[in-house]
Structures are given as structure tokens and as C-alpha cells.
């Protein structure tokens, strides 16, 4: 049996050596990777949301594979190479193409679950540069998003993967069909409040 007194993790290219124990500053054997990243190292990009492996907000890449970091003990990660959202942007090359695609397609709303989504997508693209639309949505099936960025996330990733016609959401604008418009709509029912200087509550 190996009782670990000391572990070494490579995180975003930097080696971290930790003492394992219960003393101040030690990594406790019961500490999760999420905890180590967020509370110990300030890599707060990945989030501790459900802490049960069910939301993917804490996803990081460990030795090339996306995992829920809340379901991994830091001691078990000894010797592994971890990439977090903070490690994705190259200081010279700039943003990772996935990050850029997420900006271009507005693939987030509140952005809380976005780092986890990006890391899972990144792991997928690392092993499979041209995943199908199904492979993409399946890979992300462990990622929770409640604002419903799913449509724009899938749009960004499908574009990156080169999946034509994988569009899940479309937008039809009635104005596209308006030809030769006559300027200005006339107001049928003018409001005394519309100018912004009168309050409904002050009408009494």
C-alpha cells in the first residue's frame, strides 16, 4: 500500500508539489480536485456547482480526457497532467479556437457552466477533430446549462467540426420580406407615460 505523503500535479503546464495531510496548507486526502483548483490555487474558472458529478461545471481535462473534477480526489491525480479553462488560452497564439467560436456565436448566457462545456468540447476535439453533430451533443450530455445556451454552443462546435446542415435552431425575420417600406409607423394610442417623465403611480 502506498500512503501518499506528497503528490505532484502538473496544472496548466506548471508543476505543483503538495504535501498530503491535515496540517495547514496540506492537501487533505479527502480533498477533491475541484477544491484544490478553486480554493487552493485560485483556478476559479471551473465551478463547484452540484458537487455530484452531474452538472459538468467542474470539468477539466486530465491526461487528455474530460472528467468531473468534483468526482476525483486530488491525491488520486498524483502524476497527472491537468488542464483547466485558464490553461486553454495561449499567451502568444491567443484564444483557443473553441473559445473564439464561443464568442463569435454567443455560446453562453450567464457563463457559469461555460468553462466546463468548453473543456469537455476541447477534450472531444483533441481526440476527434471532426466529430459528428451527434458525437458533440453526446459528449456534452453531462453538462448542465439552464440558460439554454445549448443551441449556440452546438452551433459553434458544429461549425468548428465542419458539420454543415447541423443547425438545430433557425431564425426567421418577418422584416426580411418587407419590401419598399413606407416610413414610420403611426401611433394609434398615445400614452401619457411614454415620454418617460410621468410615473403611473403618481397619477392619483
Amino acid at each position: 500500500m502506498i500512503k501518499k505523503d506528497c503528490i505532484v500535479l502538473s496544472i496548466n503546464g506548471r508543476k505543483f508539489k503538495f504535501s498530503v495531510g491535515t496540517g495547514f496548507g496540506d492537501v487533505s486526502p479527502s480533498e477533491t480536485l475541484t477544491h484544490t483548483l478553486r480554493r487552493r490555487l485560485g483556478y476559479t474558472g471551473s465551478k463547484e456547482s452540484c458537487d455530484a458529478g452531474a452538472c459538468g461545471c467542474c470539468a477539466v481535462i486530465a491526461d487528455g480526457e474530460a472528467i468531473a473534477s468534483c468526482m476525483a480526489l486530488t491525491v488520486e491525480m498524483d502524476g497527472k497532467s491537468i488542464t483547466t479553462i485558464e490553461g486553454l488560452e495561449d499567451p502568444i497564439e491567443g484564444l483557443d479556437p473553441i473559445q473564439q467560436a464561443f464568442i463569435d456565436e454567443y455560446s453562453f448566457q450567464c457563463g457559469y457552466c461555460t468553462p466546463g462545456i468548453i473543456m469537455v468540447a476541447k477534450a472531444l476535439f483533441m481526440s476527434n477533430p471532426h466529430p459528428t453533430a451527434n458525437e458533440i451533443s453526446e459528449a456534452l450530455s453531462g453538462n448542465y446549462c439552464r440558460c439554454i445556451s445549448q443551441y449556440t454552443v452546438l452551433r459553434a462546435l458544429n461549425k468548428l467540426a465542419g458539420n454543415e446542415n447541423a443547425e438545430l435552431a433557425t431564425f426567421t425575420r418577418a422584416s426580411d420580406e418587407v419590401e419598399d417600406p413606407i416610413p414610420v409607423r403611426q401611433e394609434l394610442y398615445l400614452s401619457p407615460y411614454a415620454n418617460g417623465h410621468v410615473c403611473a403611480h403618481s397619477l392619483d
Binding site: M1, I2, K4, V20, T22, P29, S30, E76
Partner: peptide, 11 residues
């Protein structure tokens, strides 16, 4: 999580 000791099995 509450504290526990951890041992890694070699076999």
C-alpha cells in the same frame, strides 16, 4: 467531504 485517510493499493 469529511476527512479520511487515503491509501493507494499496488495490487
Amino acid at each position: 467531504m469529511k476527512h479520511f485517510e487515503y491509501m493507494q493499493a499496488e495490487s
